[in-house]
Amino acid sequence: MRLSLTSRLSAISALLPALLVMFVVYIGATSWTVWISLTNSRMLPNNNFIGLRQYEMLFNNDRWITSVHNIVIYGVLFVSLALLIGFLLAVAIDQRVRAEDTIRSIYLYPYSMSFVVTGLVWQWLLNPTLGIQHVLRSWGFEGATFDWIVRPETAIYCLVIAGVWQASGLVMAIMLAGLRGVDEEIWKAARVDGLPKWRVYVSIIIPMMDASFATAAVLLSTGVVRLYDLSVAMTNGGPGIASEVPAKFVMDHLFERANIGLATAAATTMLITVIAVVAPYLYWRARKGEMR
């Protein structure tokens, strides 16, 4: 359909905010961030180009290395556990259980809560003096120890526990939608073929749900890179720097340590990581869309 000039102008006017945001905020801000990371800026941005020196310093920075180490542990455990638990919950709900709506609500409600709330609740639950450890001991398990949150080598796993609690419901919702989308005649055919239920899930249903798994995994992964609030609220990066994460490293160096060169180098590293994950996924989705 040919568009008249007025329609065309109206349409472009409607897109102005989006274009402005696109060019000024997204492209402009991103380029500036990348540029600052190539200078020796400290408190204020300057234009003294120093190549990749900030990146060199970044990867010699203990705190950054710890942050990266932590986010890898967190990312792998969080994504795989949330996918596993979320999928199992969806399968359980899909068995035509009673009170399905109530059960689904219970699984999903944590996702409506903020990371700050999540972090604070779990900080309280995992508190060794009065939390779960205390409960176990008062029940007679004298030797019970569950003090992960105050031990540097285990604090990051506490973030995983809280994160999985918050996000499994999301995976469940995505997976349940996928399971409900499976043609019922496939189930009938499998019953006539005499396949045990677990076998149908493993050999037929899971391979069919690649799109649901990919969507959930990508959503969870982008959440991983963004992880900030949870660490701040639950452990504030501690004990010491034991549960520091990259997003927190950037924020601290931007606003407290006044080292914006290093901070933007860290942010740019995060950007590259995200694009490395998301670009293939978006490409895959676009290809799939074309094939359909």
């Binding site: 009938k188 055919a189 499998a190 019953r191 006539v192 005499g194 050999s203 069919m208």
Partner: peptide, 21 residues
Amino acid sequence: AEPKDRGIAMVFQSYALYPRM
């Protein structure tokens, strides 16, 4: 009896083929 023990086979309207096999 379970469907597999009835000595039947069935063909469905939507074919119900296992898509990834």
